[in-house]
Simulated scan of single mutants.
Amino acid sequence: MIEYHSIQNILDLCKEQDKKIWEVVLQADMDESGASGEQVFEKMRFMYRAIQEADQSYEANLKSQSGMVGGDGEKMRQYNATGKNLCSEYSSLAMEKALKMGESNACMKRIVAAPTAGSCGVIPAVLLSYEENKNAEEDELVKALFVASGIGKVVAENASIAGAFGGCQAEIGTASSMAAGALAYLQGADNEQIMQAATFALKNMLGLACDPVGGLVEVPCVKRNVAGVVNAISSAQLALAGITSVITPDDTIDSMRRIGNDLPSCLKETSKGGLAVTESAKRIMEQFKNH
């Protein structure tokens, strides 16, 4: 029976069994669930198609109940159409899709928590944009989701994916790490490079506070999804260039756990610190209450 509890476990299993990361993750799921390989793969395909549907159902004219979120994804689309965005066509599209997915979540539309609702835009934006921009086959994108889920499982087990426990590093940080690994896979990275990409992305997000205005998954959450996307893309490129992290993947995850424990409660989804207690935030919430 295959099981893993660390990134090094996954890499060792890949080496011992001459498998790719997605194959090890799929096999572990089969062993745990008792389902066939085809059943597990098709379940993940269902997830990917749900992500596609969520992206396609974006409504530019929708506003969240608080009025803080809505329409920015359309603004990004319009800006991208001018050709002025300095980022590549792929990165520009990913930024747009991240905003749209985050806004859809804030507007109570159906999304896929990847790995959480607050970070729902990162992985979808990276994968959907790759499919659209690079004409990738669906099976490869599903395999990339297996890569992402393997990384996410290790982080969840050894640190946290919840803002209430680890701050936003646990949500956007984990999503960005998962997306970086998935993108590196799609670009042809080997197993080691995939995990290096994931490590770079997580390192860059260490210490990120969770300070939602009014306790709502809107500000600054939605725009942090864009930061997570750009971080994931750059991290994958570092790994593909052959650059390696001085700190190992598992040590990085362990550091994230310790940092999360050290963060004061005011920076862990309680809305009692950070951006949530600024004068700007207080004015917004006062207006919201009056309505």
Score class of each variant (00 low, 15 high):
L13I: 07
G207D: 00
S234E: 14
Q78V: 12
K15S: 14
C168V: 03
T270L: 15
E89F: 14
D12L: 12
S92M: 07
S245M: 06
S88N: 14
A164L: 11
A81L: 11
Q39P: 06
I51F: 06
Y185N: 07
M95L: 09
L275D: 06
K43H: 12
P212M: 04
G102P: 06
I247F: 08
T244W: 15
L145C: 02
Q56K: 13
V277F: 12
P115R: 01
V40C: 00
E96Y: 06
E137T: 07
A114Q: 11
Q39F: 04
Q169A: 00
R45H: 07
G73P: 01
E269N: 13
S66C: 07
G228M: 06
Q169K: 06
L26Y: 00
L93Y: 09
A189W: 03
G215Y: 06
N105P: 02
Q287K: 11
E269H: 09
A276M: 04
D262K: 05
M68N: 02
M195T: 07
L186N: 03
P249V: 07
F288P: 01
V226E: 09
L62W: 05
Y58R: 04
E32I: 04
E89S: 14
S265H: 11
R283D: 12
T244C: 13
I284F: 14
D262M: 08
L208K: 07
I253T: 02
